[in-house]
Amino acid sequence: MILARLLSLEIWKRWLWSLVRFGLIFGMSFVILYPIIQKISTAIKDKQDLYSPIVVWIPQHFTFDNFKKAISIMDYWHTLANTVMLSGMTTILTAVSCGLAGYAFARLKFKGSKLLFAGVVLTILVPPTTILIPIYMNLKNFTLLGIIPLFTGKPVSLLNSYWPFILTSATANSLKAGLYIYIFRQFFRNIPKEVEEAAYIDGAGVGKTFTRIMLPNAIPAIVTVLLFSFVWQWNDSFFTTTYLTASKVMATQLSSLPFNIGKLAEGGGLAMQTDPFYLSMVQDTGILLAILPLVLMYFFVQRYFVESIERTGVVG
């Protein structure tokens, strides 16, 4: 009798907690998804729906006009191709160089490697703003420690090209690369030493052990780094707007989007009126278009992503 009552109390408690948990998770999900839903609803609205008091989420006059305008203002397909190329390139280079460095810091100890790893931690901790100006000047008059002027007579400017991104990512010093080295190091440290020793005993060299034994075991870490670096490069406005001013990639297009829309509106290029709300509507559509490829990608890889982070041992 007493047991039954206790049991029912227990069940009540569990139900109540499920309810509270559902409320919390639903609410938080709503806060996260709200801007996206709102943007989608804005993007498919017609202009007259904007002021209609009865239209909140679902438009009365369904239209793709905003998409067309935003695509033409952003030069979308061209920009998309550029961005995919830039992000893909830096992602692969970063993963390779950070993977090598991470493995060396984890398993191939040499004299001074601890000190160098402290250098990696320093690159994580120093805000990029602190070194931005010297890097900018360095890239503007790039000499590679005085080697290039010997051939061409004068330093070359690497700005407005993809070279800054290629060079920094090939040398594992791109955006947040210190973090990736750290992730790889933690992961390789957690792979049992015996696996590696077995390979050595069977006669594999260091290179072969790394590519044949360690890398296939490190797929979760590789996926994590690939995803993070792709997404962060895609969204990065800090370095991109500094290095690339003329080239069209998503980040620069997005940050100049308000300006471009305003310009078009003034010139009457697309027969737009200078209604700030309407301009903002096109801007929202532009943002939606910029994040759309990422969201689509996320839907395909998210399961793998969540699982892989859980196994990467970022937690060490």
């Binding site: 320093l122 690159t123 040398t171």
Partner: peptide
């Protein structure tokens, strides 16, 4: 590779 980048770009 990292070391070169570290010296040059950091």
């Amino acid at each position: 590779p990292w070391l070169i980048g570290f010296l040059l770009f950091f």
